[in-house]
Nucleic acid binder design. Structure first.
Length: 251
DNA sequence: ATGGCCAATTTTATTGGA
């Protein structure tokens, strides 16, 4: 089974690229973040015509997450019960082909010690608590844009980014707590490769000069046997790309 | 190297992204 995660930065702009990606990489399940549209505006019929079922938690203008799957999608949950008062659409999970598939879009945080940053840390606290419960009962696969560069290996210019939003110690500690629940960071496992970036700034043509960060992750329960793993950076090099590249694993 | 990019919005500037 081939599973991917991708921050598409607007599904309406990226629909053709997403369809090409699903086909060319033979993807069975795709988790998407920043679909930037309501459930009603989400192109479910296009996915269905291409053999995919959809679970969507949309929002006007900002955020929004979705899962599309060749397999039947069961027991869908959105973040409402987990994140309480939070009105932003950042979490959806479902039971698919024996696994709990979790799709998450962690808040950006803007700058360290702003209200947005503290909201991000609080969101992560709730996510950690929730996924601790999930891990006790099901094999889980978590895909998402965490907006955290896990270590200095995941930053193109350590000196420039040290301590800044996405790279602060508090954020990295939260990410480690998430792993400590019992998940593995599939792309990083047994690798000290610096070239695992998943995001490059549109500004200054950051992709061309590989000025990137690793902000997107596929995590799995430790007992899941991973057959292959890759970043699909080709999707970042095409015309009118998302600023994020997809990650694809086979289990 | 953070103003110069991109997407959405009853747009013609503003917000958010990271």
């Amino acid at each position: 089974m081939r599973i991917a995660t991708w921050n598409v930065n607007s599904i309406r702009v990226r629909i053709q690229q997403v369809l090409n990606f699903l086909k060319n990489y033979d993807v069975d399940i795709l988790m998407m973040q920043e679909i930037k549209c309501t459930n009603k505006m989400f192109p479910s019929n296009i996915f269905e015509n291409n053999g995919f079922n959809c679970a969507v938690y949309g929002q006007k203008t900002y955020n929004g997450v979705a899962i599309v799957s060749k397999y039947i999608i069961e027991d869908v949950n959105t973040g409402n019960s987990i994140f309480e008062k939070d009105q932003s659409a950042r979490y959806i999970d479902a039971f698919i082909n024996g696994f709990r598939i979790v799709c998450v879009y962690v808040p950006n945080g803007q700058e360290v010690n702003t209200q947005y940053y503290f909201y991000k840390l609080e969101f992560l606290n709730k996510l950690i608590k929730h996924l601790s419960n999930v891990a006790n009962v099901e094999d889980a696969i978590i895909g998402g844009d965490f907006n955290i560069a896990r270590s200095d290996l995941d930053v193109w210019n350590v000196k420039l980014w040290r301590g800044r939003n996405c790279c602060s110690n508090a954020e990295r500690e939260k990410f480690q707590r998430l792993l400590d629940i019992g998940f593995k960071d599939v792309l990083r496992e047994n690798s000290d490769d610096r070239e695992l970036f998943t995001w490059w700034d549109y500004r200054h043509d950051g992709f061309k000069s590989n000025h990137g960060l690793r902000l997107d992750y596929l995590l799995t329960s430790k007992n899941i046997n991973v057959l292959s793993r890759q970043r699909c950076i080709k999707m970042r090099s095409l015309p009118q790309p998302s600023d994020h590249a997809p990650i694809l694993i086979e289990i």
